[in-house]
Design a protein around this nucleic acid. Structure first.
Lengths: 192, 192, 192, 192
DNA sequence: TATGAATGAGCGTTCATTCAT
DNA sequence: TATGAATGAACGCTCATTCAT
């Protein structure tokens, strides 16, 4: 009985997510409208809001999904031997994160800057990202005077910086990739 | 004639700014509503928009004012000899920037992530900040294998990271100050 | 300038009222939807809510209009000489008031039972009704041991009672008209 | 078997009523939500609706309970000799009925104005009220040119009128009690 | 420049009621 | 009877921005 109900709930939840994914793949994250999602899911609007606190909650989940998929890939990687590989490995995820201004803004908001009350999904992908990168940094030919975790937090800082500058008129001469390369070399390579 | 008109325009502009500052000091940046600003300034809604492109332009100006005041102080500083001094010097500005979630979000958006079309005031404070910090880094006992400018950009990246984590439930064990200290030591000190 | 603006405001207001009246005459009071009103008026939804506090406010105004029209007619009447004429005179208004359950409920709610904070339009029609009826009662062959105003308030009480019973399953044997006749004879005729 | 089931059913019914009474005494009639009632009763939402046709049915029952208690008291009363006693006797019930706008509205709706399809509990208390009052009027020093029943219906009309005016901003100068006194004197006393 | 009514598009809400299990 | 997820149909709101005067 409880099982049956859970099944129904799960099914509805999936329908909503599927519908949302469809809208996004056809249009964009920014273009997603709750109205359209429920319409496609064949579900009442009220139902949407009993499954997600608000539209942002759905967005967080969908964006996390993407990021987590990238993280899954990254976890499977062998240790990376130089910064070039590093950047090349991170690039797909970075490209997703900066593919839409809307996405980047939302990530920024919910990564660090949001979750005071409640740790959200995006927040957790940042944790996970630090872990993955840490594991690489622990074994590679990188700086070892500080902990891999601290090193990974720095990578994150530079990543955000590089992504942010992508959206900035003052810094369009250099590509995101090049900038990141410069940053990470300076951060990860032992000074001498 | 023209003078009189200019005088009136300037007066209106001031009234609007004063009104905005009043609202902010009584409530907060986030709580500012154009409605209330024009009400207090005693002008019509439309007038606001002939003085400021949009609400964000006002916000940028008000926030930049604050930041520039901090930068003025920083520019007067003698060169800083260690990271502790560094952090201590930056702290007032950081505290302002993280005093409201809304402020930090807006800074983030307009620092890097926004100004595709137009370089705004906040963007420029970031430029200025890099310059000031660069000047310190050029003479202090800091890492010198990379340019002071790059070093300063890194400082900025870590600053943002530290501020972002202040707003994150997962990272409340360490203070912003301590975290920043750790970051900057790792970033600015020669590895060996 | 102010005049021009007032004119525009008034025009919009009229458009909204016209649209509402159209909907009502095609459908019913109950079937009126704000959405449809603004659509027909060619006006934004926000505009509706800057002209009327809420849907009920519009309803009150429209219902009052009707009632006031009936009251205008009643004011023109010569003094009424007997209770039969009385009831016959009041009947059109009564029929309107009980033509829709929705209308009667709204009248009830906003006549007496509502307007604690703010005296609404319907409330005022009740006042006016007392005045009109008073003027009749002052000169007709009616009970004169109490003030015409008190007498009129009683008429109102019996009117409401009769209307309410129209909607009641327990009292459908007698017509509204007959019941009212009985009530008013008992109330207005000197006992002897 | 059947007995056990009945016992359970009765128990659930009681739990629901108890829960509802608790909510009302803590908050108000208006604030009662089916959600909260079932939560407190520890049953599912659907269960509520297998015990009560709808929310109003519960409300009617709870309100009738109160009114019937007052009527029980009134029935025990000796005949009343003057209007003052009359009003004084009715006052407790009136106070309950006007203790909440919501209660008065609901009573109004279900007394007369509602029960087209089905004669409800509140409707029946009005019947009962007429009977009780009739019995007083039959023997007291009151007008006797019309039937006690008609007289009692008039009392009811004035009662409602007086209660309605209690909620009206235009008529706050006079107390409900005084107004009722005036009405009933005029209605119940022989003109001469 | 100044005015202020109008815009607008979507979000979140409401909560009694239903219905398949 | 009992369950509780789903329904549903508007409403009201938000508030920065526009535009005709």
């Amino acid at each position: 009985m409880t099982k049956t109900l859970q099944k129904r709930t799960l099914a509805t939840h999936s329908k909503l997510l599927e519908a949302a994914r469809a809208v996004i793949s056809e249009k964009s994250f920014e273009a997603l409208r709750v109205e359209e999602v429920v319409l496609r899911a064949g579900v009442a609007k009220g139902t949407f809001f009993s499954h997600f606190t608000d539209k942002d909650a759905l967005m967080e989940q969908l964006i996390s999904e993407h990021i987590n998929a990238y993280l899954n890939d990254l976890e499977l990687r062998k240790a990376l031997n130089d910064v070039e590989d590093f950047v090349e490995a991170l690039l797909p995820m970075i490209n997703f994160m900066t593919s839409e201004r809307y996405i980047f803004d939302l990530i920024l908001r919910y990564s660090g800057a949001a979750a005071i009350e409640k740790v959200g999904d995006i927040s957790m992908t940042f944790e996970r990202h630090v872990k993955v990168v840490s594991s690489w940094l622990a074994v590679g030919p990188f700086r070892d005077d500080i902990s891999p975790k601290l090193l990974a937090e720095g990578v994150q800082a530079f990543l955000v910086q590089a992504m942010a500058l992508k959206f900035c008129a003052l810094h369009n001469s250099e590509s995101l990739e090049d900038r990141l390369l410069t940053y990470l070399k300076a951060w990860l390579t032992p000074t001498l």
